[in-house]
Design a protein around this nucleic acid. Structure first.
Lengths: 215, 215
DNA sequence: TTCGTCATGTAATGCGTTACATGATTAA
DNA sequence: TTAATCATGTAACGCATTACATGACGAA
């Protein structure tokens, strides 16, 4: 039951209509809680019925009218409550990795999988680059350190960073795996991938990449 | 509708009972398709009814009897079919990152979140280490390169690698974020985290870590 | 004698996905 | 005139989660 909480936190510090939330989910909340427009639209009346958000009609000319929602006190309490409850482990759902699991069973399937991995790598890299842009525009002319020290709501920055990291990681894995599968299909050595790098764990050695330098 | 496919691929090359599948999901399939025991048990009769798997009773003494399932020809075709269909983007669901999104709204909540991040980092690292062990036992005395060249079914290795990478990445993110939040709460600089590292993108510079060296 | 493992479920409820539906405005 | 954006849904179905349930064996 966390779509509820995902919607509530999206309303922290800003009122928004359903359509705006749908758009906001695309670039921020989707990084940790992917949801379809239908789900979001369906959730809003439920939250309002429970008194966690309050909606009001906004009449527009040249545009359809819309219903704009704000967090209530009860909604804020629900968020704090949620934060006080133990988190469940993260879960991934990935069709493509289900396919990777079959690798070695059928050569034609393997070729298909490798080409889908290439495509996935490109998509992930594109999304990662988008996140890098968003992060840099959040920073303005400040360094990340300055931003994290001075900005009051750093949450959106930190979660966008999560999305960036996930996409980069996914792109990296997809490229590596595509090469491994294809090299086998050719019966050749795996080119251009330093599999024998002496580092055993990325976790201690590698800092998070910098957003400020480069594009 | 991919739990179906996750179960089918788990039966590639080996017959298994429900209980065994539940256990297998824990350490391998869960890395890309997390599912509860109840879901798996419920899925098996459905797959059998569709003719994608065949079950037979195995009578045991000293143990409850069990029903063991094998892929049918139709099941294999269903897998190939699935592979030929375009994959959906990966999705993450992560409670804790929903909480991170709120950071900056309430200091007490922030402290709570930072401490949950510490815990998460530890759990992820433990799981990553477990995967490293599993990977090394798959390799035996071969290098990864040798393994990928010579073993016929490399799928389970590649997906375990995915799990390892995800857990390491998640641990790294959790540590970094916990520090960022806590440093702000103290009003201090962020210690020990090289935020200003000149590398802009992890994806091109960093190879996948090696499994063979270290423990 | 208590816990963990083996072995398998049911039932209720709620969440999520897919397909379908509408209708105006504005930019290419 | 075609597509994209704004704005919001309904309906059907199937998937997922939570709680509950059973019962024997073996190890500590």
């Amino acid at each position: 039951m966390t779509l509820r909480h995902a919607v509530l936190v999206a309303l922290l510090g800003t009122e928004a209509a359903g359509y705006q939330l749908v758009k906001a989910f695309d670039v921020s909340v989707a990084n940790f809680w992917a949801s379809s427009p239908q789900q979001i639209y369906a959730e809003l009346p439920k939250l309002e019925a429970r008194g966690l958000i309050a909606g009001r009609e906004v009449v527009q000319t040249n545009r359809p009218n819309k219903r704009v929602y704000t967090l209530t006190k009860a909604g804020r309490d629900e968020i704090s409550n949620f934060i006080a409850t133990a988190s469940k482990p993260s879960i991934i759902r990935d069709d493509l990795v289900v396919k990777v699991f079959t690798t070695g069973d059928d050569a034609r399937d393997d070729a298909q999988i490798a080409s889908e991995l290439d495509q996935r790598a490109t998509e992930c890299q594109a999304r990662a680059d988008l996140f890098t842009q968003i992060l840099r525009s959040m920073l303005g002319d400040r360094t990340e350190l300055e931003y994290l020290q001075n900005e009051q709501r750093i949450g959106p920055y930190l979660t966008c960073r999560r999305g960036q990291l996930f996409e980069q990681d996914n792109a990296r894995y997809s490229r590596w795996t595509a090469e491994a599968i294809r090299a086998r299909l050719r019966g050749q050595t795996i080119p251009g991938i330093p599999l024998s790098d002496p580092r055993s764990s990325i976790s201690e050695a590698t800092p998070l990449p910098n957003v400020t330098s480069h594009g």
